[in-house]
Nucleic acid binder design. Sequence first.
DNA 1: CGGTGATTTGAATACGTTCAAAACTCGTGG
DNA 2: CCACGAGTTTTGAACGTATTCAAATCACCG
Lengths: 228, 228
Amino acid sequence: MAAEITLPPSPHLTARIPAGGKPGIALFAGCPDLIGTPFAYAREEEIYGEGEEAESVYKIVSGAVRTHKVLNDGRRQITGFHLPGDLFGLEQGEMHRHTAEALSGTQVLIFRRRVIERAATHSAEVACHLWAMAASGLRYAQDHMLLLGRRSAVERVATFLMAVDERLGSTGTFALPMTRRDIADHLGLTIETVSRTFSQLEEDGALLRTGGRQVSLRRARLRRVVED
Amino acid sequence: MAAEITLPPSPHLTARIPAGGKPGIALFAGCPDLIGTPFAYAREEEIYGEGEEAESVYKIVSGAVRTHKVLNDGRRQITGFHLPGDLFGLEQGEMHRHTAEALSGTQVLIFRRRVIERAATHSAEVACHLWAMAASGLRYAQDHMLLLGRRSAVERVATFLMAVDERLGSTGTFALPMTRRDIADHLGLTIETVSRTFSQLEEDGALLRTGGRQVSLRRARLRRVVED
DNA sequence: CGGTGATTTGAATACGTTCAAAACTCGTGG
DNA sequence: CCACGAGTTTTGAACGTATTCAAATCACCG
């Protein structure tokens, strides 16, 4: 399934690339020696699976990726969505602790984990970068724990929409890069509840749906829903 | 409230200290230059608050600590419990992103964050330690996301009991160091649901309660409840 | 334009919550 | 040593939010 051909980049996300300057092929801004190999995955293609040996680390050039964990009966928790510029698959340990799949056609740069790890043992700068990455993931995960443990369905969906808007450039109008199922599995809800909540938010004038995944947010109203 | 006197260490937790050898006063095993100052907190005392400047990092010598986040209406999510040998309060950034409080009388070693951060920029070893800490926190948080987003009340409580047992030495019999409210706020439940779930697990023969917080686990049965 | 998968909507159900009160623990003082 | 009292935990009953099961509608790709 993996294709080395260049896939057409997903239209709603590529706009972000220039925001951080050209992504280049280096892992970190100041580390020209950590070079990645370009690669591409098709929509819904698995990039790596939970339990596999963590050989590679990925940086998104275009497209979008989800990472998740599953229980043996199929219940799934999406631990994160990753957009252009984001790194994923960076584990500290030999194994991947979740599965990664492309949401849409996705171009990445692939780095060898061993090389990065070795660089970290020699360079405090690289190691600090790795620390920063892990710390930022930790902040996100802890915020999400609060959302999953203590927020209602409307609050979860409203929070999610505002977060996606911000990561997509804060235009207030965008196409969601993921399905209702993905949203549900990220927010700890069912697709039906997510759908009903979208409808409710639309009735309340907190958003507008114009066909499919396209949404326009009324940010002030959404903020009032979350209210913290 | 903060006291420099030596408090009697909490009896159910101190047994763990020898497991990792004497904790000493250094932050990491191989870094004798990062020295901590002993300090003690009383039961229920706040160690630091969300939003405060993160001046210090703490390593527990005896006792136990919880860290949490709150919404403005009081809903609380406990992001972690910390036992002897554990580090907490290590942020990457100027601010604490949660509140830390002592569960019982707790002795800690205090380190200056600035010193650690500066050491990290010079020493790849220190920086790698910090990465390892953050990565281990991230693994825990992501596992907990799955629990909060996708597991039932019984599964959450059973998972929690097994995890506490393991951290307390895998004896199968111990006193829970935290209240029902703390457990509830960690598992995204109410105290009533936690209590009812304990009762149900006892009926099912998965555990035995002998007064207050003392429990004896039937691990095989608990494992069957979680079943993954 | 047809078909397939995604999304929305509806009705019934279930799980966990809320509100209320009883029972139990444990520290304190008589 | 026992009794008291405050806080914690347990139990009960009614309720509500999100889930489940089912079906209709919509969007998009060929």
